[in-house]
Design a protein around this nucleic acid. Structure first.
Lengths: 189, 189
DNA sequence: TATTTATAACTAACCGGATAGTTAGTTATT
DNA sequence: AATAACTAACTATCCGGTTAGTTATAAATA
């Protein structure tokens, strides 16, 4: 039963766990191989080296994110809620992104910045349509939304991490976030 | 010119830089020794091992923080502004905290949680005095404040890091944060 | 259909440099 | 003379990456 595609997937799966818990520097290729039940050399055949393996894992999950969360500039509170739900469901991806931020080898700046720019322009357009004037720039709003929505998912050194099983607390926090973003997008004329 | 105290300080200084840029796993003791212009063994004499050196560095800077930023429950927007200024002035300490959060060896949970609890109670008291009823719980407010205030200091994977020399953008963002917290603490009766 | 052949999938063992931590000894200071 | 401050050299282990070779699989050939 030899299946290259399956072993590749198994490697990516366990690499995800390893990198998410230990980061790039802390991750151990031997440990990944052992847990994925494959020979270490396969990792180097399928993915050039530790670094590339990491970026592959990150890239894979990031593209998934963009498919799962659609951006709705006309409903920013709702968007915040979606991001919050996603963040609480996938703290490991958040950690991956944080490791990548701290260990900034080969920045994948360009695409991320482009995606952000696009969102900012969409907010600007939506603001023009609704003739809403908030005190806040689209740049600030977007950062505030993303930051607040992901604050309770375990990567924030200040915010207490929420238990992802505590449905009650979870929905309380979600509505609080929605409320906060509502306040910030309502405009004060 | 032999001065143990001075070399200890030199070690802590360079260790700060090393840990802040590479984290615990990525930091290299040899590199610290070289940069601190001291023999590697001294590091092990003065600070047990790499781990202890890290926690010593972190602890040192954290106590400094608590001295520099006073908590003002009756003026939360002002507190947010102070935190923002501090965060933009000390991104390296932020990074240190983030590394510590991700590489959660020997959590220093207790004291941090206690300090947070104290602040939360102070907010509750202040709210009672002013008879202000915001939609938000003190827990949520505190996390929101800390998160927003530190979002632009370079550890947030979503928010664009601000250039700490761009005074104009800096003060713009500061007032935006203050405005946001004002909205959240004003109450809607 | 049976047999060879090519190659894809996989493995065990190894390598060398890096790295945390140690030892045994030297130099300065009081 | 005693001890505090410091050093050079060493060690054992870890770890990313490689090599050289084996096994399964499927196509080609007879």
């Amino acid at each position: 039963m030899r299946d290259a595609e399956a072993t590749k997937e198994r490697i990516l799966e366990t690499a995800m766990k390893e990198f998410s818990s230990y980061g790039i520097a802390g991750a151990r290729v031997d440990r990944i191989a052992k847990q994925a039940k494959c020979n270490k050399n396969l990792i180097y055949i399928y993915f050039e080296n530790k670094e590339t393996l990491f970026t592959t894992v990150l890239q894979k999950h990031l593209t998934r994110v963009y498919e799962e969360i659609t951006f709705t500039p006309e409903d920013l509170p709702g968007f915040a809620a979606k991001v919050f739900d996603w963040a609480m469901a996938h703290p490991d991806i958040l950690r991956l992104m944080e490791w990548n931020k701290l260990e900034n080898k080969t920045e994948s700046f360009t695409e991320r910045a482009a995606a952000q720019d696009k969102k900012i322009k969409m907010i600007k357009n939506a603001q023009n349509v609704d003739l809403k004037k908030t005190t806040f720039t689209p740049e600030f709003l977007l950062s505030a939304i993303m930051t607040l929505a992901t604050a309770w998912a375990g990567i924030n050194p200040f915010a207490m991490s929420l238990d992802s099983d505590d449905q009650k607390k979870l929905s309380q926090t979600r509505t609080a976030i929605v409320e906060a973003i509502k306040l910030m997008t309502q405009g004060t004329e």
